[in-house]
Design a binder for these strands. Sequence first.
DNA 1: ATGAAAGCGCTAACAG
DNA 2: CTGTTAGCGCTTTCAT
Lengths: 328, 328
Amino acid sequence: MTTIKDVAKHAEVSVATVSRVLNNNGYVNSATKERVKRSIDQLNYRPNDVARSLFKGRSKMIALFVPDIMNPYFPELARAVEDVTNRHGYTFVLCNTDDEIEKELTYLNALQQKSIDGFIIVSSTITEEHIENVNVPIIALDRILSANLSSVTVNNREGGREATEYLKSLGCLRIAHISGPENASNTTERMRGYLDVVKNEDWFLSSYVVSGGYNFDKAKEVTINLLKNNPEVDGIFVANDLMGVGAMKAAQSLGIRVPEDLSIIAFDGITLGETTSPSLTTMAQPIYDIGARAAEMLIEQVNDRELPRKTEEFSVKLVERQSTKVRS
Amino acid sequence: MTTIKDVAKHAEVSVATVSRVLNNNGYVNSATKERVKRSIDQLNYRPNDVARSLFKGRSKMIALFVPDIMNPYFPELARAVEDVTNRHGYTFVLCNTDDEIEKELTYLNALQQKSIDGFIIVSSTITEEHIENVNVPIIALDRILSANLSSVTVNNREGGREATEYLKSLGCLRIAHISGPENASNTTERMRGYLDVVKNEDWFLSSYVVSGGYNFDKAKEVTINLLKNNPEVDGIFVANDLMGVGAMKAAQSLGIRVPEDLSIIAFDGITLGETTSPSLTTMAQPIYDIGARAAEMLIEQVNDRELPRKTEEFSVKLVERQSTKVRS
DNA sequence: ATGAAAGCGCTAACAG
DNA sequence: CTGTTAGCGCTTTCAT
């Protein structure tokens, strides 16, 4: 490996001068600057980032915590975060946490030992006390972790309301809800939105709300039970697309036609919903945008640690596809 | 940040001694060792990995290059690699290359400046000369880059043969193939397997092979053309599942029933193929296993730089689902 | 068994 | 405008 010393020797200057032209700061005669640049080229010198990091106490790395990258909601988020961080010269570290607090804490520690510059976190388990001794910026993404932490989310409750209203507008008379895990802020908000709309309907039964755990197979299973026990249900608002597809499979396995007998609307707007038959009507999040925004926000906070905490909420948008249909 | 110096002071020893207990090497009196450990605990000391990396010239980081994590084949691979690297104390860096050589070279450089320990690379564009001055181990994954580079792949040609034979065994009389990009070794092998089986059939036409570019929309489009121009086709072997789902969509849009009129078999075995209706018959790769194996192999080579290059090939397995059916 | 000190490669005062 | 030097926090000879 060629070092700054080699360059200095080759250009017959001091390492300080080389460092100055490298970082383009401080005064340096344009002639010597050229000479140094030539030496850098000739020696094909690349500064050692580890040495820089040691000095600066920052590594130009950013980490994204997701429960599981295999869940199809997260790749787009990850892609967005990587694009932005990369564009700003940061290295992107991906951590699968399985929503286990031990893994999360382990990552938090390990990465701080590497002088990581900040975290973007999707989590249902981390709370304030877990991060009180984290001394780099954190952005909560998709789910809110704590009131005084910056966050980027969508209007889940409003979206839940709109989805449910949409089913009503289609003429659905019995609308059920497949919810996600209890401890995730996003899914509880979606359920609230659903309840806002149906809780005063005379037909509403608490058994119309069942938990699918953000999981394809689980959702399929609970949907089968739901539809068996409540054959009158003609509309389902499912808390995310992955479960929505599971719900469609469930209906099909029961010989219930979607959308003729049953309308299904879900939430997220992942590509998966476009590939199924029928394709899935959904409340689409601007997934890429919220990931990108979280990354930008984090980088802003990394560059100015005094920045106030900020919380941004994006809007979801109804995307009508084939799994919903006007009742006749 | 508390440093090794603080611990040394607190335990009334030298930093060298603290370092010894930290790394569990060299002689150190068990009494003082205990004292040091207590100090470490009390001060809640965590060694600075950047300083370690600077000294060692290694960072305990491993990078995975994928074309695009949003392609549903890659999350499982990424998950596998992350699991293994994490288990061995490595930090996992994810890079989306879009199969663009400039991005790949930029990443290669940037990460070496960070003293990265090794690369796992899925690429169709990198060749030998691009990596000749990379001085850390590289494992090619999914696609072969160069003969003298370690690699982990599947038996693509054999798999292509089996898929095509399977369609024949079902009674398909005109079998087409949707292939991937020309420059990727995996997809050309799959096509070879297909050709092995059909090239001597008297019905075989070169127009039965069309390229879908490993892309959902493109595959859908070319399949529509294929089926319009060649309505006699009653079986398609598609080079991957993503395109396979596109092909199913295409058939449906044309009113061609799958599997009654047309059997479709694809390749990869990603979860997506289970969620569609009909679900997709496929030659399933052990995706997680090859990712995990590549990571293990890389770590072996990181730990012993003299290890010989190794190339491992896993087997694909026919998974019969609903998109194929015996001709009647 | 322990400590002193050099050095990993770089940056940023401080001098001149 | 340029050079000298002191670290950043750690590991590892080399003494003792």
